[in-house]
Nucleic acid binder design. Sequence first.
DNA 1: TCTGGGGTCCTAGGACCC
DNA 2: TCTGGGGTCCTAGGACCC
Length: 420
Amino acid sequence: MFGLTDCNNFYVSCERLFNPSLNGKPVVVLSNNDGCVISRSNEAKALGVKMGEPIFKMKEIVKREGIACFSANFSLYGDISARVMDKLRSFSPGIEIYSIDEAFLDFTGVPEKDIFQTGPEIVRRIKKDVGVPVSLGVSHTKTLAKVATRLSKKYPATKGFCLMEKPEDIAKVLSKFPVEDIWGVGRAYSKMLKSHGIETATDFTKKSPEWIKSRMGVPGVKSWRELRGEACIRLEDRTLDKKQICTSRSFAKDLYDFEDICKAVATFAAASAEKLRHQKGACREVLIFILTNPFKDNAKQHYQSAAVNLETHSDSTFTIAGAACNALRDIFREGYGYKKAGVILSEISRKSDLTLSLFEDSSKADKESSLMSVMDEINMRYGRHSLYTAAAGVEKIKSNQNMLSKRYTTSWDDIIEVKV
DNA sequence: TCTGGGGTCCTAGGACCC
DNA sequence: TCTGGGGTCCTAGGACCC
């Protein structure tokens, strides 16, 4: 048996934790740059606020209904998430942290009557000890556990816990479960399936596996088997190293100036390099991309990316930011208003697995490596952007974050700034 | 005026090999 | 008119997830 816990309206719940006056009121959390809605309280959902809705289209309803809006405060959410996961781990060591607000639990071999006891206890304890509401669904496969979690959210009478065990109960649920809500069925597939008259999960399970395979490939067949009760997606170890590391942002306004974009790219490169060092990796390829604002209909558009192969694997901010800025020079075009940029590191290996290249000057690498360690340590202690390369610019490229809550749990971040 | 960010996996097709 | 067969590797792009 698999369990899936899912924090309800997670980002909103985190904001409420430190501001209980928000309870019972419509609340939303906005994406970076205060662009669009990425989390909604039940009250906001009831008012018809859509996920992903741009905030500027909601001005009127926000004012009329008094919706409380918050800029995304990811250091707060990350910290609360860690507390939830720790608490879950105390119930079951078999846990897969699937996202910031979701985790799968291993209930293999646990008798049904024990699940009926532990399940509600998990939900109660996280609410009591951490303070955020969660839902828990349990069933024979991960895909069915996803279904169960959705039921426990939808029906308050479940008090956040739902066990789907008996075949006849499962069949009844699936016959009403919309095909587009199946885990693994996204926009494109749900459109395709509906064009063939498949509306519910039951309709889906009644097609032949060959039919599914030819249209949705191997992953489609996995979903199909899982819905029929055959577990074929295991718990995974997600503590493994990332194969790609990406940092990208939209800008508060269009940037036309090469120097400005270069600073942003250097900043993103530095952030990616820091994540890379954190997993003790080194990358061989640096990819950058820039794009204009695709929503501006009458502006000329430009999207381009460029990849740089490094001579040897590297984790140095200087090397990576240098490569990124050189690549930018090749693709940047004068006269375009750029809205977003990003830096992706790939071909990542563990540093410990790499042998020094024949051509590499090891003393230089050693020096840089010590420098990076010092930089990371200072930034860890005194907050991000305490130390940075000159390429990133002394003035930060501004983003909009006009409704940011306090960093209640990690507030040392802003205490000291060392300018170099 | 204002539209998020960070990942993974799979597949088809091309290049190349003998 | 006719144009081998079988394999591997790589990449771009498309699908998905939160």
